[in-house]
């Protein structure tokens, strides 16, 4: 009897979460198909006009920019994080490992807004004189997003690298493989599950980034979340905002699924 109840009981929290998310999504979808009445918070009848409106060039450009920034963030974060994760996983000295771990985790102890304001000072012209403008440009937003994503990427990669048996690397080296070849043929392939999962996580959450583009973009770099906020809170167009959020969610799911298939090695 107990065993029979155990299954449903264990499933209950997950089911409750699914029902709550489904209800919220249902409410979002319902709002997205109601007519927007300018100058009023009331909505009109059922319409597809909101989807028609958010599929215009202006909004599609925001989706395109978001996809590009997310892809660039993922690639740069991976490149910057892999060496740190490798050092973290392979450092022989406990002190060095603790130091690296401490430095990796340090950004988590400051809020995202504080970090972003710090970047505003660094990227702006008040402290440093940059040869090209970085603040309020996509490049500045990219810097902020990479910094924001690095700790997570490092921790996932370090966990994956820790599972790569160093004996395999030593075996390759003993058979004459140079370090670069050992890395390319042994370490990297074996750490790919970590690379894939970390990349998917960073890509997906960058897709919904809000504070970093809002502050470092100075209103000139709009990602999806910024447009959703613009429509909802600046234009009071909640149905339009809901429609854009639905479109963006569909695009995100499609891209993440596509990226997952692309990056996951197939069993042959």
């Amino acid at each position: 009897m107990r065993a029979r109840l155990a299954g449903p009981l264990l499933l209950a929290p997950g089911l409750i979460a699914i029902v709550l998310f489904a209800t919220a999504l249902g409410a979002l979808f319902r709002l997205s198909v109601l007519e927007f009445i300018p100058g009023s918070l009331r909505t009109g009848g059922v319409t597809a006009a909101n989807f028609h409106a958010v599929l215009s060039a202006q909004y599609l450009r925001a989706i395109g920019d978001t996809a590009l920034l997310s892809a660039a963030t993922t690639i740069l974060t991976l490149l910057a994080s892999y060496p740190v994760a490798y050092a973290l996983a392979r450092a022989r000295s406990g002190r060095v490992r603790s130091l690296l771990l401490g430095l990796t985790l340090a950004p988590f102890f400051t809020g995202a807004i504080v970090r972003t304001y710090a970047w505003m000072l660094v990227l702006g012209s008040s402290l440093v004189s940059w040869p090209v403008r970085l603040l309020f440009e996509p490049s500045g937003v990219l810097v902020g997003l990479v910094h924001f994503s690095m700790p997570t990427m490092i921790l996932i990669l370090a966990a994956a690298l820790a599972h790569v048996d160093p004996a395999l690397e030593r075996a390759a080296a003993s058979l004459g493989a140079r370090p670069a070849r050992v890395f390319a043929r042994v370490t990297l392939p074996l750490s790919m599950p970590g690379v894939v999962s970390a990349s998917l996580i960073v890509f997906a959450w960058t897709f919904s980034a809000f504070a970093t583009p809002e502050l470092l973009g100075g209103g000139r770099v709009k990602m999806i979340a910024n447009v959703v906020k613009d429509l909802a809170l600046d234009s009071f167009n909640w149905p339009g905002s809901a429609a854009f959020a639905i479109v963006a969610l569909a695009v995100t799911l499609a891209l993440v699924a596509g990226l997952g298939r692309l990056l996951t090695p197939r069993a042959s």
Binding site: G219, K222, D234, S235
Partner: peptide
């Protein structure tokens, strides 16, 4: 006020597309 409340969504959309957009 009424013109502003009614036209603001349109102003905002035009402004985003023509002035804010890079």
């Amino acid at each position: 006020d009424e013109t502003r409340a009614t036209l603001l969504p349109k102003w905002k959309e035009w402004f985003n597309a023509n002035i804010v957009a890079r």
